[in-house]
Each structure stands twice: as C-alpha cells, then as structure tokens.
Design a protein around this nucleic acid. Structure first.
Length: 454
DNA sequence: TGAAATGTTGGGGCG
DNA sequence: ACGCCCCAACATTTC
C-alpha cells in the first residue's frame, strides 16, 4: 500500500495532533518527517529544537517508528521524498509567520497534482483569517479581538494519541540529528540550559499537570521574579510539544474547580493568539513600527551600551539580573522582560528591533510573533501598545517585585559581596535618561497625520 | 502591565 | 483658643 507523508513542523507532539490523527485515519502507512532548512533561528532555540526532536523520535520509536530528518527547502525535500516513497498524500500543520506561509505556497505548488495535500490549523485557538471586525478589517486592539473570539465558543476538546497508527516499515534514510549542528560546541554553553529545562512532549504535559499549584498563587506571584510562580510552558507551546487546546481545557477544568487566577492565566493564552494574529495580518510586524511616526524616532545607537545591556553590565541590578538569567538559562521572567526592554528602548534609546533580535537569539521560547508584538508594545509603537511616556524605573521595579533582592543576588552574585567592587556603576542616570527619552518622543509626537501603517 | 510632578487635605507644633 | 506653617499622606494630572 502506498504511504503518506506526515510533515512535523512546529507541532512536535503525538497527542492532539490533527495532522497525525488524519494521517492515521487514512489507514495508510505513515512516514514521519522533519525538515530543517536554513531558517534563521537563534542559538538557544536550536538547542531546544535538538532535544525536542530527540524526544519526538524516541516517542515514535516506542510506537515502532522513527523520525525521518531531512535538510533543505521543504518544497524540494518533500517533492523528492514523495517520488521516492510513492506517497499519495502529504499531511502538515500550518504556521503563520511570513516565511512559513511562503514555504507553504511553494510546497503546495511543488506537490500539486502528484500528491494530495492536507493542511491543518492546529497551533492557535483561532485561525487569524476567521476573526475580523464588522468592517472586515483585522482587529488592532486586544480587547475587542478577545471579545470577538470569546463569542465563538470553546475550542474543541483535545484528542489523545490515536490508538492505532499504521507507521511505515519502509522508512527512507534519515539524516543523523548530530549532523544538523543544532547543539553548541566549542564552547558548549548549554550547561545551564540542560540544568533548567526538559524539552519534549512528556515534560510539557507534566508542566500542564502542575498548573494547579502554579495558578493557585498566580495572581499574587506572577509578577515576582524571585518566585517560581509562572508556568514556564512558553517553550513547550512554541514548539508545539503541547497543544494550546490541551492547555485551554486544562485551565477550564481548574476554572470549574474555582482555582483562583485561572482566568488571568487564560487571558495570556489569548495574547498569544493575538500576537500570531497581528503577525499574520501585518507581516512587517518584526521590522517596522505599526505607528508610522516611529519611523522618524531619533534613536541613539551605541555599541558599547548595547553590549553592556546584553551582558548584564548596565549597573542597574534588576536589568543585569534579567539579562544574565536570559544568557545563562535561555529564559527571563516576564516582568523583568518588560523592565529590560524598557531600559534598552527608553533609557538607552536603542531601537527595539535590536533588542528583539537579541531576544530571538537567546530565548528558548523565542517566538517571532510574541517577540515582535511585545517589543512593539513596550516601545510604544504597536497598534495596542503602552504609551511611550510609560517609562519603567528599574530601581522602583526592583523594590516592588523583588522586595528582598533574592532575584537580583541570585543572578548578580557580586552584589552579595561587601565591597561590590566588580559591579559596574550605572551606565546612564535614569532620571536624565528618562528626560532624554521624553524629549526624543517629543520629536515625533504630533506627527500622526496617519495614525497607523496600512 | 509606570512614575514624576503637582495639587489637596488634615493633623500637630508652636507662638 | 486661634491662626499659621510644615509636611506626610493621599489624589490627580502630566509626561
């Protein structure tokens, strides 16, 4: 019997996987594939991806199969594989980034005619094209977007791994994972990542199981970087090791048991959908400010200050703690992400795109949509952004959200020493930096002849 | 999901 | 007792 191709993309899981379910229902032998192309993903994400692929491969092996890994552009790879295996059908899950959408057009074109292509929407609560205003334009503001999607009703219940899957026993040869060079070598900087994270589906599902204890204190603790009070699900969600529907329904169960803060947490899931939605409808989101007057913002690039920010040597403890946590563990607490981003964009007047690029390179949960939307939010240039004049005071933020200084001292150990001679003086004075930022904003304020980019 | 600047109020010290 | 000032505490406005 002729096989079918199951192309894993950012849905590196077996449970609640629409493409896998459909392929299994076809009854034909399945060939599971992952394609690595020259996509520009950051170092920390590459580390995670490696281990996520190891995990998926191992889960497939318990079912008597394994992952076929190829490298190259997906249209060429899939075309070749389909001829080689005489596959009848390709199953895959849609992605929503501009480059991915372009790839999908190429894949569909390369295979059309010879192979049936079955595409699934499987990584968001709602497909971006389905949510539009009355005027049939995309929403630009979260709250009306949220209101609109809330009226649609519950997302479908998650499905378990199909009880019977007919995997192909005649798999084409796979590249060895190690040849993809996803892991850092010389030097291997991934020690702290290994100590912090467990990539893969089963570890992600465990985190969902632990949500109960997280959410019962979430309202009080989610803004406290000194407390492990967040779900830490972001990388698992990003790589699709867990599905957003599994998470949504897990939260719903907690809501029914009136676990406090489940609605607060659920709202965050809709922010994720909204970011993907914005990127879908505004593909320039990663590069261009949505408020076009920010094209004329008088940024002040400064290589040595940028380096100080990246390395956690600004002289502001909370900023430096966050940047070092990021560098060492591939993750930063969300409250601190806002503080360090505000510091880069407002205290240093360095363009938000520069900060976004650093985050994409260093975060294990680096996500083009969330990252771009969030940087535009903090920079004040997004369509539903914090006003520019909201400038975080890094000292006050530390006092409020790290009251005992535990977080700061964990990541900036020099501060525990009595002399503190190794710790740098502040590279800018926040008071004067704040005034300078407001003056810079004054240059573009009032330039809004047309408020938003088309 | 900010914080500084400015305004208002009211208690207490003191002549 | 009274008016005046000071200033902390809180509220509002502004960036």
């Amino acid at each position: 019997m002729q096989p079918v191709l199951l192309w894993f993309r950012r849905n590196l899981r077996l449970a609640d996987n629409a493409a896998l379910i459909a392929a299994a229902e076809s009854g034909r032998p399945i060939i599971p594939i992952y394609i690595i192309d020259k996509q520009d993903i950051g170092g920390a994400s590459r580390w995670w991806l490696h281990h996520s692929l190891v995990s998926l491969d191992s889960d497939l092996r318990t079912l008597g199969s394994s992952l076929v890994i190829r490298s190259g552009s997906p249209d060429k790879v899939l075309n070749k594989l389909s001829k080689q295996t005489r596959a009848t059908t390709l199953y895959y899950t849609r992605r929503y980034e501009p480059i991915s959408r372009h790839q999908e057009v190429e894949v569909d074109a390369a295979l059309s005619g010879a192979v049936a292509v079955q595409v699934f929407d499987d990584s968001l609560l709602h497909h971006p094209e389905k949510i539009m205003t009355r005027g049939n334009t995309p929403y630009r503001v979260f709250t009306p977007f949220w209101k609109s999607v809330s009226e649609i009703g519950d997302p479908p219940s998650p499905q378990s791994v199909p009880s019977s899957i007919n995997f192909s026993h005649n798999l084409p040869k796979s590249l060895r994972l190690s040849t993809l060079d996803l892991l850092p070598s010389s030097p291997d900087w991934s020690g702290d990542l290994r100590a912090t994270w467990a990539p893969g589906e089963s570890a992600g599902l465990n985190r969902i199981d632990e949500l109960d204890s997280t959410l019962s204190h979430y309202d009080q603790e989610r803004d406290r970087p000194d407390i492990d009070g967040t779900s830490r699900l972001s990388p698992h969600l990003h790589f699709g090791e867990v599905s957003v529907r599994q998470l949504w329904h897990a939260i719903r169960q907690l809501e029914l048991r009136s676990v406090a803060a489940s609605s607060t947490f659920l709202r965050q899931l809709y922010w994720r959908d909204f970011s993907a939605y914005m990127l879908f409808h505004f593909p320039t989101l990663p590069d261009k400010p949505l408020r076009i007057e920010f094209e004329d913002f008088p940024w002040s690039e400064n290589a040595s200050q940028l380096r100080a920010w990246q390395k956690g040597m600004t002289g502001y403890p909370v900023v430096d703690a966050g940047m070092r946590q990021l560098w060492q563990t591939g993750w930063m607490h969300n409250r601190v992400r806002m503080v360090v981003a505000s510091f880069l964009v407002k205290d240093l007047l360095i363009p938000w795109q520069t900060g976004a690029a650093w985050f994409l390179d260093t975060l294990v949960d680096a996500d083009l949509a969330n990252n771009s939307a969030s940087w535009q939010w903090i920079a004040g240039c997004g369509s539903d952004a914090a006003p520019y004049f909201r400038i975080f005071n890094p000292l006050l933020q530390g006092k409020k959200f790290d009251p005992h200084g535990h977080y700061v001292r964990r990541w900036v150990p020099e501060l525990t020493e009595t002399s503190q001679s190794d710790y740098p003086m502040p590279i800018v004075d926040h008071g004067t930096a704040r005034k300078r930022a407001l003056e810079a904003y004054g240059v573009i304020r009032g330039m809004r002849t047309s408020k938003l980019a088309p």
